[in-house]
């Protein structure tokens, strides 16, 4: 059961600011999703390995060879604030 408190906690972990109404809406919608999941739970999955990837591919690897990096003006072009070639972020703690 997804309560108001659970929604608030998940929102906090995801750094989302929700209004009272939004919390209520999300609680209801998340509960509906969980109800649908309950239907899936009825399927017998004994002896079936959990799925790690939906596509039947594995071992996609690359060689350890150096390639091009991005020019720094481009790297920082979307930064709201920057200083000394670095991204500037607000006070952390």
């Amino acid at each position: 059961m997804i309560t108001k408190e659970v929604v608030e906690k998940v929102a906090k972990l995801s750094r989302l600011e929700l209004t009272e109404e939004e919390v209520a809406v999300h609680a209801e919608q998340l509960n509906k999703i969980l109800e649908t999941m309950d239907i899936l739970k009825q399927i017998d999955t004994d002896g079936i390995e959990p799925l790690a990837h939906v596509l039947p591919i594995q071992n996609v690897l690359r060689e350890d060879e150096v390639g091009e990096c991005m020019p720094r003006e481009k790297v920082l072009s979307n930064a709201p604030e920057q200083a000394d070639g670095m991204f500037q972020v607000p006070k952390i703690v």
């Binding site: 000394d84 670095m86 500037q88 972020v89 006070k91 952390i92 703690v93």
Partner: peptide, 11 residues
Amino acid sequence: ITSATGSLADY
């Protein structure tokens, strides 16, 4: 970190 006014990120 606690008295800093902000931080700079180098990736």
